[in-house]
Amino acid sequence: MSRIDITFAKLKQHNRKALIPFITAGDPSPEQTVPLLHALVAAGADVLELGVPFSDPMADGPTIQRASERALKKGVTLRSVLALVAEFRKQDANTPVVLMGYGNPIEAMGWDVFAQRCADVGVDGVLTVDFPPEESHDAFEHLQRHNIAPIFLLAPTTNEARIQQVAKLARGYVYYVSLKGVTGSGSIDLSAIEEKMPQLRKHIKLPIGVGFGIRDAVTAKAVAKLCDGVVVGSRIVQEIEDSTAQNVVENVGRLVKELRQAI
C-alpha cells in the first residue's frame, strides 16, 4: 500500500477526515519550506500538497500567483522542489507528499526522469492542473511505473462520463474543486457540493478531497462533513505572505491547528 492509501485507511479507521494543506515550494524562501512542512504535520496535516512554482499559473488566483512569483525569484525549480522533498523525508517517512503544479516544468525535465526522481525522493502523488486525463497518457504510464499516484481534479462542471474516466485512472485520492473559479476565489456553496457528492461517489471509490474557497475553520468543518478530506491552499499561502521570516512557521502552525480542531 502507498503512503496515501495507508493514511486514508487509518483516517477511516478512526472516523477522521483528512486535512490537506497546500503551500508553494520555496515560498517565502527555499530554506523555510522544509520547516513549514514539518510544522504542517505537527499541527495535524495528513497529506501535504506542495506547489511547484510556474511562471504562468493560469488556474490560480492572485494569492498563489504571488507565492509562485516569490518562489521563482528565489530561483526555485522543479529540481530544487524535489530536493526539498528529499530533505523533508529525512525526518518524516510517513506523511504523503503530493506535488501540484503545471505540466510544462515536468515536460522540460521529461516524465520518465521526473517519475524516477519522485520515487527516489519520496513523492507520493502528482497533480498536474493543466493535464486532463485525455492528455495524460505519457505522464500516467511513467507515474504508474514508479507507483506514483496521478491525482485528478473534478469540477462542478464535470459530467458523468468524465467522472467515470477519472475514476479509472486516478489513484490515491480525487480532488474535487468546489467552485467554478481560480484558487482562493469566491465563496463555497455547500449545498452544491452536497448535491454533487452522490454522483461522484457512484463512480469514485477513492477518497474525495474538496478544496478551493475554504478559508476558515467553520467552512472547513462544514465541508469535512461532506467528503473525506479538506484541502486548504490560498488561506495558508496568505498567512505565509502576511508573516515575517521569524514568525511564519509559528503562524502557519497555529492556523493549521485551528483547522485540524475544526474538522
Binding site: A59, P156, R162
Partner: peptide
C-alpha cells in the same frame, strides 16, 4: 478529432474548463 496537429495542439486545460 482530438484536436491534435501531429504531436502539437490538444486540450491542456484545467478540468473546470474541459466541458466548456
Amino acid at each position: 478529432n482530438t484536436g491534435h496537429f501531429g504531436q502539437f495542439g490538444g486540450v491542456y486545460m484545467a478540468e473546470t474548463l474541459i466541458p466548456a
